[in-house]
Design a protein around this nucleic acid. Structure first.
Length: 269
DNA sequence: AACCTTATCAACCGCTAGAGA
DNA sequence: TTCTCTAGCGGTTGATAAGGT
């Protein structure tokens, strides 16, 4: 049993008085970075003891993961990242670390903070619970379409945009878990648009341009969003119904192909 | 300028699961 | 099988910056 810390979760009183808490100093950061560069980012209690830092291993780990790690991405959450957070939270709830896996460089803590400060604030303004159907509907039908519009407005569909970082992680470790296509969204004319907008323009026959849909699933022409001539209507997931329902994996590859096809370095199973 | 409120985010806490003895 | 230790996760808190009155 080590003297410094018997258990990272329950230090003794004597140890407690010797443990530093609160904001990290530059010196502490430098020491930790130096030790991690030598010993690697594991065995945090060992690092905490050996480095002379009067911090718990837990504290060292957190400081490293959330701040000192070289690949931590700092700065404002981008529109694409905002969209991804909303989308993935709608799928997985408060699984912050899982969501963070799809936003390389972002920490679970950062995403959690974003959700609490920005998203929950909106729920508060709407005077509804963040888990209520009203809020979910508002998010899906109002907020997310607006985000998509803004994303489309600022990015070229033919070039790699920041969405790349949302669907890829370590190039050697491609994500295999698919991301379902967001309910209510389809790719139209090489744009990522709310399905409701297609319906609104159905009389102008957007069918031909819908053949641009990538991913090898919806590739026919003559689709009419109003359901008059085409494949049917959208299912609950905003995917085309009938024989052309997108599976989760297809939706994932759709996103991958759309936003960053040149980075796809693995095969479709 | 002073005070108050709100927003942001780093850091902590408690809990749990998994590994290993 | 049980116990201990550790890493990781999600919830919460507190300090501080920013904005408003």
């Amino acid at each position: 049993m080590e003297d410094y810390e018997r258990n990272s979760n329950s230090p003794t009183h004597e140890e407690d008085s010797d443990v530093r808490k609160g904001p990290w100093t530059e010196d502490e950061d430098a020491i930790l970075v130096n030790f991690v560069s030598i010993h690697g980012d594991a065995r945090w209690n060992h690092i905490a003891r050996s480095s002379g830092l009067k911090r718990t291993g837990k504290s060292c780990r957190l400081r490293w993961l959330n701040y000192l790690r070289p690949d931590v991405r700092r700065g404002n959450i981008t529109l694409e990242e905002q969209f991804m957070i909303l989308k993935l939270h709608s799928l997985w709830g408060n699984r912050w670390s899982k969501i963070a896996q799809y936003l390389p460089g972002r920490t679970d803590n950062e995403i959690k903070n974003y959700w609490r400060t920005r998203v929950q604030k909106q729920a508060k303004h709407l005077r509804c619970d963040v888990n209520s159907n009203l809020f979910k509907e508002t998010m899906r039908n109002v907020w997310m379409p607006r985000l998509v519009e803004r994303i489309n407005a600022q990015s070229s569909p033919t070039t790699c945009n920041p969405v790349e970082s949302m669907v890829t992680t370590d190039p050697g470790q491609p994500i295999r878990e698919p991301i379902p296509l967001e309910p209510g969204f389809v790719q139209f004319n090489q744009q990522f648009v709310p399905a409701s907008e297609l319906s609104a323009t159905s009389s102008n026959s957007p069918a031909e341009t819908l053949s641009d849909v990538q991913g090898g699933v919806v590739n026919g022409s003559g689709y009419d969003p109003a359901g008059q001539t085409g494949f049917g209507e959208f299912n609950d997931w905003g995917c085309v119904g009938g024989d052309n329902i997108w599976t989760d994996e297809e939706s994932f590859w759709f996103l991958q192909d759309q936003f960053c096809p040149e980075t796809t370095s693995y095969s479709y199973n």
